[in-house]
Nucleic acid binder design. Structure first.
Length: 913
DNA sequence: TGTGCCTGCCC
DNA sequence: ATTCTGC
DNA sequence: GCAGAATGGGCAGGCACA
């Protein structure tokens, strides 16, 4: 890390560069021209505007290195670049390059767009040295427009009363900002001499202002005086009998500001970033280390550390420019009626509690339409910003679907955080957890009465999830959560946990959320669904719907399209029936002798959608995640297509003309895609092929509403680079043909068969009646249940999850081989629950070892070696076919038989048709 | 440095 | 992935 | 028929800890 020291200014010893030193130095960067930042240095790095202002305030000769914004320069052997800081006219940040390392020094800055300062810009940097003047959470400024309106109203009222409004602000920067703010308000500003001089310099750089006057003591009535704070109680002002004085400063947020400044009013218009913007800035810059300066430097650094970012105060200088009385902690909801709040802009009740209550109401009704109505009412009442943030929460997601950020906060982290927040004992916690079998309910009971609730705004929920994402490691994440849980009501905690676990479990998912959006804003649900698919962001979709701008979401290349899915069917006859049963309705191909369906082998790989233009290639997974980086050699070859296209298909492990197993392919999934050596590694192991089975976009034209047979025709004319194949289409006209082709596909060791309607459009995200899949179990095993476990959610009171075993002939013992729940009806589960409760050998709480007397017939798609179970084998897609009441534990299948099945599978590999 | 646990994401 | 259930 | 809920195996990566 770049070495940083502090001695009345930041010093970088390696570069021998000082940043805003208070004392005269040989070589210094001067961020802006406020008088506490300028000193008679020998050589300075400055922006052009700051240089000009500095000359006016501190005459004398020195060497100036004047740098334009955004251009990298070398000065005295140091590589650096200036970026606008948004603080005042000409204010700059210094971005420094030192080998592979970067450092960003903000100087004074703000993110809110000012009217007289260049808007701030930033770059990612390893070290961020930032000013934290307002680094305390109470300093959150109300919207600028609102403050300006208050200032204008203050001036107007004073003039109407026959008085003179006086606005106090620093002569450089703040005064000009005030001047700009009054533009168009019908007021005539009159400037104090020092303000006037600075304003003239601004004008020389081309900044224009509304009409203003220089101070004239005989002409003040009906004008707005703009003076520096030092002019308060000065001779000049004392002469004005009827006046009202307002301080314009970020410190106005403090409720007692008017007493401290001895003014009639105070308005929070600041040239510094407020607390929220300080946090945002850290997020923008994504530094590995933050060093804080000025104001609440130590406190803010502590806050950052709590959020998982390494941060330290550079100086232990006085925490404030003014001595502030301690403000008592905000009263909690628990002890006061509604979470009273003294800060401006703070809601009187907790916004997130309102969210949670809506969730509870939705959970309480089983009727879909009622759920939709409840949600629609809630969404309609949200501000646009809150709509954007909170809508994804109803789908159980903290971020938009297309947002690749993850939280890495699962049950273990939540558990640790709740326990730390409530000091609940281990036993008590486990008692509560096992009584619910539901993370959310557990959270409610654990937190209830053990926290000090404070209002939690929707914006703060957004910050919480962002911080959680940014925090590195389970310990930091748990600490972040603990901190929040301790300030949440139990209900809010429950819903935070629900979102963290990705599942609200209130009987409402994305589909109903889309319907609610449509209902809330009176737009067609189809349009909402389409926009959501294209945007991959239900919050953004809701926002567009609220503005009636859904049509702005357009299908385009490089925006992933939801996959069309297939409905499973057990037999060829069942599939064929699907195509014939609708005869006479609108499916023209069906029932006639010429009825045709398209058959394709079902490959066992991962679904992939590849977008290719002349400039770019992207690959997306079934869940629309970007997996481009996982398959560099595919991307490489995709450049060699002649067309711009979007293709749908399956990436399979493939070597020497033969398909390998999914197991092989999986080794290439989940790899970090930004590793420099990935290409070499990926190319070195499992090779892959892209089997194309659909074409969704060709040379600028969407083919979604083109029938499959036509899409296939276009596809067949596309020239394929290496690594790409087209899945063969086999027409069929009967159930028998389907069955025959299915058997052939199985012989080729592919998973099964896809059966598609040649006339169908591509229906994104639809598991409709146009595509079917035919898969059959590899085999079934008769096994005996040796363990039973309580389920979750609505299954939390039944033993629904069974561990089962085969017999090892060599030892005669039972050898566990898998677990399954799916396949039994609720009634059967209830029956088995009773049975196992009465036949428990050992009770381990949620898990029970049971007497091995229930025989299940278990189906599965493959079997392979695995350390997961004691048998050394594991099943893929295990499901219960039947309870074999006719069998007993002596007639179950053997481990040896299971091993044979596994060996058969391993000895051969699949092939293309 | 190796191992185990947790999480996310494939099926 | 698979399967069942309620609307 | 659809949407929701509850459940399976297994991989890579990242962290914590020995």
């Amino acid at each position: 890390m770049i070495e940083v020291r502090y001695e009345r200014g930041v010093h970088l010893p390696r570069q021998d560069l000082w940043l805003d030193p208070r004392d005269a130095r040989r070589f210094a960067f001067v961020s802006h021209a406020h008088s506490d930042h300028i000193a008679p240095h020998k050589e300075i790095v400055v922006s052009e505007r700051t240089a000009r202002l500095m000359q006016s305030r501190l005459p004398g000769s020195r060497t100036e290195y004047i740098l334009p914004f955004g251009e990298k320069r070398t000065v005295r052997g140091v590589d650096l670049m200036l970026l606008p800081a948004g603080h005042i006219f000409g204010s700059a940040q210094c971005f420094l390059f030192a080998g592979n390392e970067t450092l960003l020094y903000t100087g004074d800055f703000k993110l809110r767009p000012g009217r007289s300062a260049e808007p701030a810009e930033w770059r990612k940097a390893d070290t961020l040295i930032m000013e934290t003047t307002f680094g305390l959470s109470r300093y959150r400024f109300p919207p600028t427009e609102q403050v300006i309106n208050q200032i204008i109203a203050f001036c107007q009222e004073t003039i109407d009363d026959g008085g003179v409004p006086v606005l106090l602000g620093y002569s450089l920067g703040k005064a000009q900002e005030i001047l700009c703010s009054l533009d168009g308000a019908g007021l005539t500003p009159m400037l104090h001499g020092s303000v006037y001089r600075m304003t003239r310099i601004y004008e020389q750089f081309g900044q224009s202002f509304c009409k203003y006057l220089r101070y004239n003591p005989n002409d003040v009535f009906g004008k707005v005086l703009i003076c520096p704070p030092s002019a308060n109680h000065s001779h000049m002002l004392e002469k004005i009998a009827r006046k009202r004085v307002a301080m314009i400063s970020g410190w106005a947020v403090d409720p007692n500001a008017i007493y401290r400044y001895q003014v009639d009013a105070a308005f929070a218009l600041s040239d510094h970033a407020d607390y929220n913007d300080l946090l945002r800035y850290v997020e923008f810059v994504q530094p590995r280390r933050v060093l804080t300066l000025h104001g609440f430097a130590a406190s803010f650094a502590r806050d950052l550390r709590e959020r998982g970012t390494e941060a330290w105060a550079l100086s232990e200088e006085n925490q404030m420019e003014f001595t502030l009385p301690q403000i008592p902690a905000r009263p909690s909801v628990a002890t006061s009626d509604a979470g009273r709040c003294t800060e401006e802009g703070c809601a009187s009740t907790s916004e997130f509690l309102a969210f949670a209550n809506v969730g509870e109401a939705i959970a309480a009704t089983p009727a879909k339409l009622e759920k939709i109505r409840l949600l629609a009412d809630y969404l309609r009442g949200l501000t646009r910003e809150h709509l954007r943030i909170a809508t994804p929460y109803f789908t159980g997601k903290a971020f938009a679907q297309s947002d690749p950020r993850t939280l890495h906060a699962g049950w273990a982290v939540i558990f640790r955080a709740m326990q730390a927040a409530t000091k609940v004992s281990d036993e008590e916690f486990h008692r509560i957890a096992s009584s619910h079998g539901d993370a959310g309910k557990t959270a409610f009971e654990v937190l209830d009465g053990r926290t000090t609730p404070q209002p939690f705004s929707i914006s703060e929920t957004g910050e919480l999830f962002e911080n959680l994402h940014r925090a590195r490691g389970p310990i930091a994440k748990a600490e972040l959560l603990r901190n929040r849980f301790s300030r949440l009501s139990a209900r809010e905690g429950q819903y935070i946990v629900k979102i963290l676990t990705g599942d609200l479990r209130i009987g409402l998912r994305e589909g109903l959320v889309e319907e609610a959006i449509a209902k809330a804003f009176g737009v067609p649900v189809e349009q909402v669904k389409e926009a959501n698919m294209l945007l991959g962001d239900i919050g953004q979709t809701a926002l567009l719907a609220s503005r009636n701008e859904l049509d702005r979401a357009e299908l385009s290349i490089f925006r992933p399209i939801k996959c069309m899915l297939a409905t499973p069917e057990p037999t060829a006859e069942a599939v064929w029936e699907r195509f014939t049963e609708v005869a006479g309705t609108d499916r023209e191909l069906a029932s006639s002798a010429s009825a045709t369906v398209y058959l394709e082998d079902k490959f066992d790989g991962i679904r992939a959608q590849l977008h290719r233009s002349t400039q770019q290639v992207e690959i997306f997974s079934r869940d629309l995640r970007r997996i481009t980086g996982q398959f560099p050699e595919v991307v490489d070859q995709a450049c060699n297509f002649q067309e711009e296209l979007i293709i749908d298909g399956e990436i399979i492990a493939f070597e020497k003309g033969r398909a390998l197993t999914f197991f092989d392919l999986q080794k290439r999934l989940g790899r970090r895609s930004d590793g420099a050596d990935l290409f070499a590694r990926a190319a070195a192991d499992v090779p892959v092929a892209f089997v194309i089975f659909d074409l969704l976009w060709l040379n600028g034209r969407s083919l979604l509403k083109t029938p499959l047979h036509q899409r296939r025709r276009y596809l067949s004319s596309v020239q394929l680079p290496p690594h790409f194949q087209i899945a063969r289409v086999m027409p069929a006209h009967s159930a028998a043909e389907i069955e025959q082709t299915f058997q052939q596909a199985r012989q080729r060791l592919n998973e099964g068969l896809m059966i598609k309607d040649p006339g169908s459009f591509y229906l994104p995200g639809n598991r409709g009646m146009f595509w079917f899949k035919l898969k059959k179990e590899l085999a079934t095993l008769d096994v005996v249940v040796v363990g039973a476990e309580f389920g979750h959610g609505k299954r939390n009171n039944v033993l629904s999850d069974y561990t089962f075993a085969v017999r090892d002939e060599t030892t005669g013992k039972l050898s566990p081989i898998g677990k399954a729940y799916s396949g039994l009806t609720d009634a059967e589960i209830a029956e088995l629950t009773e049975h196992f409760k009465q036949n428990t050998i050992e009770d381990h709480g949620r898990y029970r070892e049971v007497k091995p007397d229930v025989i299940l017939e278990v189906a599965f798609n493959s079997i392979q070696p695995s350390p997961r179970h004691a048998s050394g084998l594991a099943l893929r897609f295990p499901r219960i076919k039947a309870i074999r009441r006719d069998k007993n534990v002596d007639s179950i299948d053997t481990l040896q038989y299971a091993r044979e099945l596994a060996a058969q599978r391993a000895s051969s590999s699949a092939s293309l048709p």
